[in-house]
Simulated assay, not measured.
Amino acid sequence: MGSNELRPARPGGQDGEAGAEAGPLPVVLIGAGKVAHAAHLREIRDLPGTVRLAAVIEADPAHRAAALAGFPGTVAADDLKQAVQAGARAAICCTPWWTHRDTVLECLDLGLPVLCEKPVSLDPAEIDELIEAERRSGVPVAAGYMKRHDPVVAEFIAYCRAHLDTGRRIAVDLHDPNAPHLVDHLMPYDASPFGPQPPPAQEALRRALGPAATDAQREAYARGLGGSLIHQVNIVHAILAGSGRLYGQLLGSDQWAGGSAVACRWRPADGLLVDAAHLRLPGHRRYRETLEFTAADSVALLSMPSPYARDEAATLTVDTWDAGSGLATRRIRTAEPGHTGFRRQLVDWARALAGDPAAPPMPGLTEVREDAAAVREAALRLS
């Protein structure tokens, strides 16, 4: 891990927190925008035995001050070298997605393991560059697929994999208000309104999709596909692991309602279809996300609340039928509210960096590349 190598710690305590004798993982938070305030900072505050905020890097003075509030002793660092001097031994990257490449490369150069928010990158060339830098440095990069750390999601993936030979369809449906009310109550300042991509993002999208891509394709890639559905594509890839892939198996993709809705269809195996749709619906007050796996004799339905919600949890409902007896069974699994994917992600990441052999594997850059390839192909197929 370079000059800032983390010493092994042993997990313990509630929700897998690192034991007090091992000490929490000292991190630098890079970027103090919406996802930092609505998710990471409040989880760090509630996990004092697992993660310690050693430093914050944020150019906006008001955002920086808000991030430091409640964290006495945390350093407002101007750069990563200063954060390392303040004691940071790992980094959480929450900067805009088009800046991730430079930020992650700098972290790897300094020997800092990184947990990078999604999308890590939407540019295949950048992802390959990051993979090579990770290999060369020996410092791990974890992708911020926090849904994968929810035990109910893990159970859904396991069920689908166990019944994949009789699987017929995976259907993904997102109703996303993408509105400030989802996070306003979690923010110390007004959340940025939904608006056009800033010029640096537009330039990054041109590089990622190539000069022939249209404005509509770039918008869909940045928002509905690369910004949202890439999470569910990652879940589908986890289900298909070793049994197929989405890239190269695209049947078609569509965009409608002025670009606020996008859908894709893949056929990764002869007997299996994957349908995924993201609908931006500002008039809906609640975020709604479902993944439904239909097999020959069962249906597994995964329902998830807003990723920022703490008073709700994912629910898995499995219906099975016995053709001989005609009897049906229904099994419902849910998790305790408050133990969010963001929280479990931080716990799992800290355990992995501490060398805990029982820590679950962290999604990494190889998965990022596979997921981005699938949604990029879908974006380029939009007419």
Rank of each mutant, 00 (worst) to 15 (best):
E370W: 05
E292D: 11
K81S: 11
I235T: 14
H40S: 07
Y159V: 02
A162W: 00
F342C: 10
D128T: 13
G138P: 06
C94S: 12
Q345H: 15
A36I: 13
D254P: 03
W97T: 02
D190P: 10
A335R: 14
L346Y: 12
G144Y: 12
C160H: 02
S192V: 15
H100W: 02
D348Y: 13
R331T: 15
P24T: 01
R218M: 07
V56M: 02
L272T: 05
A77P: 06
H181D: 08
D176T: 07
A191C: 10
A66M: 10
A261D: 08
D123S: 11
A18H: 13
V27I: 15
H37S: 06
P124N: 06
L80R: 11
V114K: 08
Y159M: 01
C160D: 02
L186V: 09
A352W: 14
T99K: 15
I131T: 08
T294Y: 04
R206T: 00
A208G: 05
V51H: 08
L251W: 02
L346W: 09
L130R: 07
R101P: 00
D15W: 15
A379E: 01
L122E: 00
A212V: 06
R169N: 09
A20F: 13
V75Y: 03
E312Y: 09
G338P: 06
Y189V: 11
P200A: 07
E370S: 14
Q14C: 05
R169C: 04
E21C: 04
H231D: 01
R52L: 04
V299M: 06
V75F: 03
A269L: 14
R267M: 02
R286T: 15
T366H: 15
S192D: 11
R52V: 04
E312C: 07
G355R: 10
E132Q: 12
I235K: 07
T99A: 14
T95K: 05
H175F: 05
A158I: 07
L53M: 08
I127D: 02
D311Y: 05
Q249V: 06
Q85T: 14
V114L: 09
V172M: 03
R135T: 12
A204N: 04
R206G: 00
P282D: 08
I127Q: 09
G364M: 13
G87M: 12
Q14H: 13
A300M: 08
A314P: 09
A201G: 14
A171P: 00
S228Y: 14
A238M: 03
L112F: 10
R218K: 12
E21L: 13
P357F: 10
A162L: 01
V183P: 07
C93S: 14
N234G: 15
G13L: 11
I170R: 03
S298T: 11
D270T: 14
V153E: 02
V75H: 13
P8M: 10
I170Q: 03
E126Y: 06
S298L: 10
P151H: 09
P61T: 14
G259A: 03
S303P: 00
G195T: 11
L316S: 04
M187E: 02
A374Q: 06
